[in-house]
Simulated assay, not measured.
Amino acid sequence: MRSAAEHLAQVLALVREPEFEAVPLGVALGRVLGDDVRAAGAIPPFDNSAMDGYAVRVADVSVASEAAPIGLEVVGESAAGHPYADTLGPGTAVRIMTGAPVPAGADAVIPQELVAATATSVLVDAPAAPGAHIRRRGEDAAPGSVVVPAGVELRPRHLAAAASCGVAQVLVTRRPRVAFLVTGDELVAPGGTLGPGQIFESNAMYLAAALASLGAEPVDLGTVGDRGEDVLAAVSGASADLVVTTGGASVGDHDPVKEGLAPAGVSFLTVAIQPGKPQGLGRVGGVPVVCLPGNPVAVAACVEVFVAPAVRAMLGLPEPAWEPTRAVEGWRCPPGREQVMPVVFVEGGVRPATSGGSGSHLVARLAVADGLARVRADADAVAAGDIVAVRRFTV
């Protein structure tokens, strides 16, 4: 039996390295940046005012006081996009708006609420400190400095920063195409009518949403019954960077995934994890294939532990950490297998999301879980107060 860590290493060895493409900045939200965004010039590109007020020469108002205010002639205006073109001379001031360029010769801005002004003059009753209320050129970013580093998953704030550099397009990692195939004669699409021995199909819905939330491009290969040749036909025709199948990967008499894909190059084995023990891994026609059990909780656990890291590897994203967290309730563990337990975060730590343990059939209770706890294979129980590795769901 292969350990979960060994199996993950084998999964990661199958998938490709990140690939890159240039996309317009306007459609880059959620993409992973493949190269640093650098400031082509200084940001801001010129000294500008932090306040509405008056641009002055410090020397002109150095002795101003309430008892002896100094009057300055207002010789013009500097507004955003419309700078004052001349050099400020002695005894003069320029009306200035927030964000507008500071005129040459001025070395301070006095806020408008601190002066008495008319259309042609301003009365100043206190000295101004050099540089007061002036945002300096390059204060935000110097030319050539990194504004958004490679590897960032682009959020609105990153796009705004890139736009401030004048960037129109960015290099991002290509979204991996991840195809998924659901198998089983017992499956009925949601909204249908259940016959004897049938259940509603949920894995396709989960996989489509999970893969999209991971940043992959989901490709639905549909649902096939318990015929190995149908499984092989669906997987062989997939145009994808990775194929994920669910169901039919165990050692029963009706395991179509194993029947169809084992002769094509997929190895079927047991992994020391619960839920998710029977799995398959290999290539079909050069495309990596990961075969998961069919029970929905096992699918969700194995996506978090095996499939999500593969997608993140193809996107160039790091793996989120599992954090040590206290268990506030105890539970039993399967001997010899690492347990992946759905948990709920509560005051003081975590507890199991269901009284039924980590059973792979408990899909309705999966909705109340916040994340997963991982318990090492040599533990047969978790006691209240024990520390376990926990991570909130990443999909």
Rank of each mutant, 00 (worst) to 15 (best):
G34W: 02
P69L: 10
A64Y: 11
N48T: 15
A28I: 00
F46N: 06
D60H: 00
A55Q: 06
G71M: 12
V61E: 02
I70A: 10
V32E: 03
A68Q: 09
V27A: 10
A22G: 13
F46Y: 09
A50Q: 12
V61Q: 01
A67T: 14
A64D: 11
R38M: 08
F20P: 12
S49M: 05
A67E: 14
A50Y: 08
V37H: 02
V37P: 10
G26I: 06
G71S: 12
L33F: 07
A50S: 08
V74I: 14
D36V: 03
G76M: 03
D52M: 13
L72V: 07
L25S: 03
V58R: 04
V27S: 02
A79T: 15
P45E: 01
H82T: 15
E66Y: 14
G26L: 09
V74H: 14
P69K: 00
V58M: 05
Y54L: 09
E21K: 05
V61C: 00
N48Y: 11
L72D: 01
R31V: 08
A80C: 15
R31F: 01
E77S: 13
N48Q: 12
V58Q: 06
R31C: 05
E21Q: 04
A59F: 08
D52V: 12
P44K: 03
V37K: 04
F20W: 11
G34Y: 10
V58D: 01
L25R: 04
A39Q: 01
N48A: 14
D52Q: 09
G34C: 07
A50R: 15
P45R: 09
A40H: 04
V58I: 02
I70G: 00
F46H: 14
V74Y: 04
A50G: 08
A40R: 13
P24H: 08
R57L: 07
R38Y: 00
E19W: 13
S65G: 07
A64H: 04
V74S: 06
G81T: 07
P24E: 04
A55R: 03
L25I: 01
P69W: 05
